[in-house]
Nucleic acid binder design. Structure first.
Lengths: 238, 238
DNA sequence: AGAGGTGTTGCGGGTTCCCGCAACCAGTTT
DNA sequence: AAACTGGTTGCGGGAACCCGCAACACCTCT
């Protein structure tokens, strides 16, 4: 059994290799890639079935790589391991995960024992395993007061890219007024209206992006990928 | 001689300890802190003279910690080591570095040899040492076409926090029109006017923040600190 | 069938933003 | 002294944004 590790931090990569050797005696080979693109190539070439994937990488992030890999081989088992429990990652993964595939999401701060457990559960047993921290994050989104719906999230992404209302409306196929309604509820849910100083006037658009970044509702990797999607859409529009 | 290490990633911390032991035989003790606040306390308690400081930390970032430490003991020698060569960090450090103090800035991707060299040069010899990557960054800012002046940077920060023009003008003591002029040149320098699609209308404010984040002119840690400054200013205003 | 909740859309208007134009004030060059 | 350069400020107007109000569609519950 071959395992592919996609990880751009050498220290974390070494630690992971170590844990892999301990946890998976049935493993015959470890292949290492240092960014998403190289990881994709390796997965294609080696017909890999088990992957450990970092999410935050320079050239191409883990979610995009996973999407490409899964679209070719949906039965591939992928354990994501990441520094942060970012809501943006969760949404990204939820959107691309194929039916009946095995995946997991574990934080880098998890203990070695928990990491080894996750490695066995996902890569060998084909289970789905999500870190407690991340589960907690999902729970906190059950309240309709604070939960950001997918349709709102899409508008948030476009806002963050700097699109104007009219263009968002066109891209997401809604009326101008509907876009503005979504923005309204986003401002509400992100706490744009300045908790303390009620009377303090802010630029709501920028503030929304600011809050979304701090609450880790979105992050730079996700925006980077979204920008590429936008470019594609723009090119196809004309 | 005691050395304080302020670093929240356990792997990086362990690697650093290792390198310290090799590079500095005159060292008698290593003290480890995992965030800026704890680091400050340790520096105060132990009367530390040599510090290695990560910049990106959760509770309190390295620049703020360094400012506090230097304000009490300006002769303290600090080697910053960071994942990224962010312009925002450079500006932050440049503003707080005391006269005649020794400091350095090295990237985590630097080789072990270079790290050890920097450790000796800064902590023992009291030299100033800046990573080549970072030097290169500074060089690229010499052209007045692209270099962002400090006054522009201040406006950029306020923009990123979500302040409106009027409030920025008040805070930075300029007229409304001057603020808008600064914004104008920021839009220019950050490349807000959509390189390819000239006719594509964007929300310039949001786009400016977006670009500034991607070019690493600012980053989230800096914004976090700036938010606290803003809160203080707001409190003092009334 | 009727009531109530939720989401979408148009209209209208107050506010903020973006920026061209022009005046003004150093400081520097010719 | 005159001209030039770069930064600051006021005025004014068009565009974008924010949002209250009201109409309508669709769904669910009684």
């Amino acid at each position: 059994m071959k395992v592919l590790v996609v990880e751009d931090d050498q220290f974390h990569g070494a630690y992971l290799q170590d844990a892999l050797v301990e946890a998976l005696p049935e493993m015959t080979e470890i292949i290492q890639s240092s960014d998403g693109e190289a990881g994709e190539d390796e997965a294609r070439r080696g017909a890999i079935e088990a992957i450990v994937m970092d999410l935050q990488m320079n050239r191409r992030n883990g979610i995009e790589a996973a999407r490409a890999i899964w679209s070719e081989r949906p039965q591939t088992r992928i354990l994501f391991w990441s520094n942060y429990a970012d809501e943006a990652y969760l949404r990204g993964i939820a959107q691309i995960v194929p039916e009946d595939s095995a995946y997991g999401y574990i934080l880098k701060t998890a203990s070695r024992e928990r990491l080894k457990l996750a490695l066995r559960a996902v890569l060998i047993e084909g289970q789905i395993m999500v870190d407690r921290e991340i589960q907690r994050l999902q729970k906190s989104q059950t309240s309709p007061r604070t939960r950001i719906e997918d349709s709102e999230f899409a508008v948030l992404i476009d806002l963050a890219l700097g699109l104007q209302d009219k263009l968002i409306a066109e891209r997401r196929s809604m009326s101008l007024r509907t876009v503005q309604n979504r923005l309204l509820s986003l401002y509400e849910k992100l706490g744009v209206v300045s908790e303390l100083d009620e009377d303090l006037a802010l630029n709501k658009r920028v503030r929304a992006l600011n809050r979304a970044l701090f609450t880790r509702t979105i992050n730079i990797e996700i925006l980077d990928a979204a920008q590429r999607d936008l470019d594609k859409w723009l090119a196809s529009r004309r």
